[in-house]
Amino acid sequence: MSDRRTIEGTILRGKEFEATEGRVIVADGQIAGIEEEPVESDDIVVPAFVNAHTHIGDSIAKEAGEGLDLDELVAPPDGLKHRLLREASHEETVAAMERSLSFMEGSGTAACIGFREGGVEGVRAMAEAVEGLDIESVTLGREEIEAMEAADGFGASGARDGEFGRERTATREAGKLFGIHAGERDPDDINGALDLDPDFLVHMVHPERIHLERVADRDVPIVVCPRSNLVTGVGTPDIAELAEHTTVALGTDNVMLNSPSMFREMEFAAKLSEVSARYVLKMATHHGAEIADLNCGVIEEDRDARLFVLDGDSDNLTGYQNPVRAVVRRAGIDDVREVVLETPD
């Protein structure tokens, strides 16, 4: 017998988040249908987030490194985060990552793309941390080809740290995802990153016109992490300019610097940039899902049933006039009534 349930409210439907009053029909882990009709509910039904760039291993070092610059904080191999990761036990690292993943799950995140330090052992630790949770981790190994083979792909630190040609070739041959940091502190590593023909770039705070033209020509998606960029003092990305050239997704970056809250990241991105709230919600949902080839991030038939429900009558949200703007610029974890993270068997 089919496992069938309904979820009522104002549904942010499809890739344009058309506000539709009615019911979402969930059956066997998928969205089986959407019924458009009046309902007695103030709830807002939202596609679950995809956090497109994280470093979950940093969960052992939250708010460490006050006053340090970017290199002192995270540069391999001797930045603070790498030293703390080496000093932490396997059990400590896994437990800390599990807590961050649980927080993300409870705040409506269906999946995250994580750059995971520590080679093969780091990838295995992530698998252990996510076991038993409903959030999906798209884990990109680092430091060695063997880590990529054990993971969902490879996450490169940046073209100034190495050539990564062997790693890129091996990742392509394995049919897996390859991402690389670029343009975080200056434009000098962007061409080198693009030469690797990556599946996506992370940061791109300092692109020049030639870089944007290359990105557009190759249709390379970009993941921005504006709160992290502000904290590390490298500037903030021009999201509107990037969006004119390619698909832009949203990530929260290092857990040591920022909570992995997509609500906080969306609000900051929306108020920082000139893009619409609707575009920011795309960045936080189906743009990230498309990078990782996930069947979520959109409420429409035949998608995985991965969504969350906001209490539209909460003290924070009651009286909202525009549901998309309310979700992006105002909502928070305290407004979450229910998180549904299901996939077909």
Rank of each mutant, 00 (worst) to 15 (best):
V123M: 04
E121V: 12
A88M: 06
A75F: 12
M104L: 10
G118S: 00
S89A: 03
P77W: 13
A111V: 04
G119H: 12
S89K: 13
F103G: 02
E66S: 14
A95S: 08
A111G: 06
R99D: 08
E131R: 12
E72R: 15
K62I: 07
G108W: 02
G57H: 12
G118K: 06
L68T: 11
K81C: 05
I113F: 06
E117R: 09
K81P: 07
R86F: 09
M104K: 02
T109G: 02
G67V: 08
F115L: 03
A96G: 02
S59N: 01
E128R: 14
V123Q: 02
G118Q: 03
G119E: 04
A125K: 11
P76F: 07
H82D: 01
L85V: 05
S89T: 15
E131I: 03
A96V: 00
A88G: 08
S102D: 07
V123T: 12
M104R: 01
E92I: 03
S102M: 06
L73D: 06
G114L: 04
G114W: 02
H90W: 15
A129H: 06
A127C: 00
R86I: 00
E63C: 04
A111D: 00
L133P: 11
T54H: 07
G132Q: 04
L80I: 12
G67A: 10
A127M: 12
G67Q: 07
V130N: 01
I113V: 15
P77L: 07
S89G: 15
M97Q: 09
G119R: 11
S102K: 15
D71N: 15
T54I: 02
A75L: 02
E131G: 08
A125D: 13
E87L: 13
S102P: 05
E66M: 12
I60E: 05
A88Y: 04
S107H: 09
I60S: 05
L68F: 12
S107C: 07
S59F: 04
R99L: 14
F115K: 00
K62S: 03
M97H: 04
I60T: 02
D71G: 14
V74Q: 07
A95Y: 01
